[in-house]
Design a protein around this nucleic acid. Structure first.
Length: 389
DNA sequence: TCTGGGGTCCTAGGACCC
DNA sequence: TCTGGGGTCCTAGGACCC
């Protein structure tokens, strides 16, 4: 058996690498993938990174850092299909694959060792297969726990492998800044630094109770395990609790801030229709409708309402969202973004609609399903609510 | 031209019930 | 007539991840 059965595989600059397969003429130039206007960088190739460009950077700043940067739009259909075939490659190694995004997955290779050799060799084979079959590079971390494998792949980038055996976990983790630990973001890092905990080793040496007093019970416990590399060693595979989504939402930043109720309510309709259609396609319904509003100064608030019964109907979701918006009673306050999310999703089949007294019928639900059929036949542009035409 | 869009999980207070 | 806990649901905010 092996003492490092987990692989974390992470595609290198995935969105950019996939885009560059179609544009090999650009490989030596700084390239980012992202939206235009008020967008951020989704991925930057390694040439662009030399200019200090990285993902999540506002596009405007990326252009300032490197005026000659080439900006490509993301092609989500291609990304999704490349991702699916890469994941299929992983499943040829082991059925125990936990995919955590389009470009990342954990593999438990315990059962593949006899067939394919030690994990380090499996990792190298996998990397060359991915490169040969899909034309992109990836990096792999190999360890006994999920978070150590993940940190390993980050350290191996780009285009490398790093194995962290159990005996070396402490010496690998403890020099790292706490901000490198999975689950420690900007805020928690700042808080920990403020109380003198700068490295993972500092956290590891702090008594659990002190840690929990500083950052909360749960996070304290979590941090302690992360700093010792004793987080989970089993993957969540297949029909686990994460197999079905718990919420679905859509949000959009306006090209220009808007304080016009008509514009905002129309945008809420567009978002509600998008969410409801995805819910119907997934066969789920939800009871709680949440509205997100972001102001010009970037402060963001949410308001939610739980309905008497779960729905997947556009007008019901839109009605709830509009009601929440009106209850805010904003007077000509410019909004940067609005969003609609439906939470508490359950399988559609478990929802039993009770016809309320005097309620006409389920006309709107039937209308939605007719729209779904027409969209499947003629495309999304063919069928829209009249107010969006 | 400053800061996207899709999510998950945790905390905390109040309501309400037993 | 004095002051319980525990559990669940709802709401709002915040941190984090990719």
């Amino acid at each position: 058996m092996t003492d490092t059965p987990l692989l974390h595989v992470d595609m290198d600059a995935f969105y950019a690498s996939v885009a560059l397969r179609e544009r090999p003429d650009l490989v030596d130039q700084p390239v980012v993938v992202g939206g235009s206007g008020r967008g951020v960088v989704l991925a930057a190739n390694y040439v662009a990174r030399r200019y200090g460009i990285h993902s999540a950077l506002p596009m405007a700043r990326a252009r300032r850092l490197c005026p000659q940067v080439v900006v490509l739009a993301p092609d989500f259909d291609t990304l999704t299909s490349v991702s699916a075939s890469v994941m299929a490659t992983f499943r040829e190694v082991t059925p125990l694959v936990e995919s955590i995004s389009l470009d990342e997955a954990f593999l438990d290779v315990r059962g593949a060792v006899r067939r394919l050799g030690p994990p380090a060799r499996i990792a190298e084979q996998l990397r060359s297969t991915v490169h040969d079959e899909h034309g992109i590079t990836c990096s792999v971390g190999v360890a006994a726990s999920v978070s150590v494998a993940k940190l390993g792949s980050r350290r191996a980038k780009p285009d490398g492998v790093l194995v962290v055996p159990p005996a070396e976990v402490a010496s690998f983790l403890h020099p790292l800044d706490v901000g490198e630990l999975y689950g420690v973001g900007e805020k928690t890092r700042a808080l920990l630094h403020r109380i003198g905990l700068v490295t993972a080793g500092d956290v590891a040496r702090t008594p659990l109770e002190d840690l929990q007093r500083a950052v909360g019970r749960h996070l304290g416990h979590e941090l302690h395990h992360l700093a010792w590399g004793t987080d989970r060693g089993e993957l969540h595979v297949g029909a686990g609790p994460r197999a079905v989504e718990k919420s679905m939402g859509a949000q959009e930043t306006f090209a220009r801030d808007s304080d016009d109720r008509d514009v905002i309510v129309r945008e809420l309709l567009r978002l509600s229709a998008r969410v409801a259609a995805r819910m119907r396609a997934a066969g789920v319904a939800g009871r709680t409708v949440a509205l997100t509003v972001r102001f010009a100064d970037f402060t963001t608030i949410t308001r939610s309402r739980t309905l008497a019964e779960a729905t997947d109907v556009t007008v019901e979701i839109h009605g709830a969202a509009t009601g929440l918006y009106d209850r805010l009673a904003l007077r000509r306050t410019p909004l940067r973004l609005v969003g609609v999310r439906v939470e508490g999703l359950v399988p559609r089949a478990t929802v039993h609609h009770q016809l309320a007294l005097g309620e006409p019928d389920r006309g709107w639900a039937e209308a939605d399903r007719a729209v779904d059929r027409a969209t499947r036949r003629f495309g999304a542009a063919a069928v829209r609510p009249a107010s969006l035409v």
